[in-house]
């Protein structure tokens, strides 16, 4: 009887030890799993900045991510875009990876000499001052829409020519592209004595002549974004002047195709 009780006691003790051991193993497994998942979470958060860089190529519209990254980076490194608020829009939605922008609202062929527009060493300098400091392989210019109200087209032509002269002087190595002024919508054109498509066509004709005289490239970007009337389609812009994302991408596609 005593031996039986002893055996039972021993069995009970062994059972307790077994339960404890099982508990220990289970707890260790839980702790290890928590530790591993914590490390994994930390690693992921450390990787987040990389995703910012990767995303830079994710905006190229119909092209695949890989195609867009390779063609855009190969094409527009060393390229500079000079322009007004419409070029600012291009900067926001461009997909021209590697391109740099000296773009500011209301910029004109005269104010490239006077308007502080480019951050340089902690201060803002004019575009012409910045062009004396930094070198580019290609320079794209789109200016003219803000000058449509000028009294004298000759002043515009003289100032435009002078600007191209100076760009050539400061950037002798660069290939220069002047872009035609983009149209406005038909609604805007019909309601505005200054900002209308007849006037834009007249200015574009002058810009084309300047390009020919100065031996620089002329890009008819207006043809890429206009409808059958020659104006900007109503769906392209909220105010009839500034292009939305979709039409900025069409503009980009034209630029890619005309390097």
């Amino acid at each position: 009887m005593r031996t039986r009780r002893k055996k039972l006691k021993l069995l009970f003790r062994r059972a307790i030890v077994c339960v404890c051991c099982a508990g220990i193993i289970y707890s260790i497994a839980l702790g290890t799993a928590a530790m591993v998942s914590g490390i994994r979470r930390q690693t992921n958060s450390e990787r987040q900045p990389a995703s910012i860089a990767e995303d830079s190529t994710a905006k190229a519209g119909p092209m695949s991510k890989t195609e867009s990254a390779s063609s855009a980076q190969a094409s527009f490194n060393g390229a500079l875009f000079i322009g007004d608020s419409r070029t600012e829009g291009l900067q926001n939605y461009d997909g021209l990876s590697g391109a740099q922008y000296y773009a500011i609202k209301g910029l004109m062929v005269s104010t490239v000499y006077t308007k502080p527009a480019v951050n340089s060493g902690g201060e803002k300098v004019t575009i012409m001052q910045a062009l004396q400091k930094n070198k580019f392989d290609r320079i794209y210019v789109m200016l003219g829409v803000n000058e449509l109200g000028w009294d004298n087209t000759k002043t515009f032509v003289n100032d435009y020519s002078k600007m191209i002269d100076d760009i050539k002087r400061y950037q002798p190595q660069a290939k220069i592209f002047v872009q035609s002024i983009l149209p406005v919508s038909e609604k805007k054109s019909e309601s505005d004595k200054i900002y209308n498509n007849d006037k834009i066509a007249s200015y574009n004709s002058e810009i084309q002549k300047i390009a020919s005289e100065q031996n620089v490239n002329y890009l008819q970007v207006n043809t890429a974004v206009c409808d059958s009337t020659g104006g900007l389609p109503a769906e392209a812009s909220s105010d009839g002047v500034h292009l939305n994302r979709k039409y900025c991408k069409i503009w980009c596609d034209y630029l890619r195709a005309h390097i």
Binding site: I52, A53, D55, S56, K59, N119, S238, N244, R245
Partner: peptide, 25 residues
Amino acid sequence: TDEMSPVDKTTALKLYGLDQSAVSD
């Protein structure tokens, strides 16, 4: 009142003169 469109992260950082040293996302 205007049409709002997303910009990619690199452009957003550039617009604000920031880089990845300060911004996680």
